[in-house]
Design a protein around this nucleic acid. Sequence first.
DNA 1: TCCGCTCATTGCGCTAGAGCAAAGACAACG
DNA 2: CGTTGTCTTTGCTCTAGCGCAATGAGCGGA
Lengths: 234, 234
Amino acid sequence: MGAIPASVEERVALLKRLNSPYHRDLDDDQLRMVAEPARLIEAQAGEFLYHQGEPAHYSYLLISGLIKIIHYHPSGRPIIVRFIKPGLAFRIAHFGVVSRYCASAQAATDVRVLRWDMHDAMRLLKEFPSIALNSIAVLQQMFVDLVETLNWFACGSAEERLFWAVRRLAEGLCEGDRAVLPITQGELATSTGLSLYTVNRILGSWEQRGILERHRHVLIVWPTKLASVCRYKI
Amino acid sequence: MGAIPASVEERVALLKRLNSPYHRDLDDDQLRMVAEPARLIEAQAGEFLYHQGEPAHYSYLLISGLIKIIHYHPSGRPIIVRFIKPGLAFRIAHFGVVSRYCASAQAATDVRVLRWDMHDAMRLLKEFPSIALNSIAVLQQMFVDLVETLNWFACGSAEERLFWAVRRLAEGLCEGDRAVLPITQGELATSTGLSLYTVNRILGSWEQRGILERHRHVLIVWPTKLASVCRYKI
DNA sequence: TCCGCTCATTGCGCTAGAGCAAAGACAACG
DNA sequence: CGTTGTCTTTGCTCTAGCGCAATGAGCGGA
């Protein structure tokens, strides 16, 4: 993980190109004020940007690549909470009471991120109410998403739980009619609370039905076909 | 569900007494501006304030009583997402893209709430950045809480899942050393994804160990004792 | 080129917990 | 004060999915 030299202009350009949900209401001058205290950072696949429980010193916005947000149970068992794609911030739990990272962030591919010191991030949030309002919208969407996931966990058979987990993770990662998930079957197993063996058998049956392809460390999913395994209208 | 006549002064007084996390940074004049467009509403135990999927016309703040937030799976199976106690807002998913209630709100006891028209709520949010910042803090805390819950669902045995569900629901409802949960064993079952019978048997064993008392529709829990059923340090 | 590691696959026995049935307990209501 | 409906309790059977074991497959490093 290291800093990449980048002028303010370059950072502004990155922000403009991103069109992130947080900064969409800002004009050029305002974007410049946002970009000014940021630093451009790169990290290699597998590196951790931060770890669950550490004091939250920074706020991040993903520029390119893919980030895995991982939450660890007290037993040490990890679940993949979500993927972050470019334009989304990952720094949940920065303000107020919660001053530690509530999960870990791992680079799933080589990544570039913009990083703000927490104090700067807080200041910007106060200075530009539109960022705060947009953050609320994003957070609410994430919250709703998580409630739904919880309900699927409570309801379903193994196949339904897996269906929902794959669908959810694939959702943000669609390109054309397919999504590429950088995830192993073992990770899917811990994320869903199923055993490795069960996940393997279910994915096998889905592959036979042409719903997805399994490769090493990677799952290629056709979300429209995936829907056929679910009995309910969503 | 009906309106209770209340002057602006009375509504301001209610807000001041509540000391809700959203409005703690406002002075008296500002509180008055917040209270002005609100209406005081009462509802009886069992009534629904709103239903999942309806257009979200109102924003609510609980004054007295207890609210259950219920999320329905496409199959119709409900889970109790959380209890709302006085001072907390329940109107998640009001702004931005999400314009429908993402869950239902049911009065668990007779309740009184303050209600804002969504347009007023949005206007106040823009007018008073401190409300937006505090909302972010509350939302983040709720999000973190939900991620933890999800992980316990993925990890655990039946007893661990139930432990976490009871602990979580009891957390906000502590009075002295005990918490009174207005919940049936059947509701706990659907909320945890366990069967009625399993919940009954586990709660039975906990009651024998003095961890809780079961009454009709009500669970009395001693949270400190509850911790003893969990193998992990939390 | 071989070794070693991590991830994937498959068969099989076993157990936690689902699900049915049937009875008991309590509250609300006429 | 019985009736009705909802919630709780318990015994019993059965199966979905766990978890072990053993093998295979691909990748990286020396």
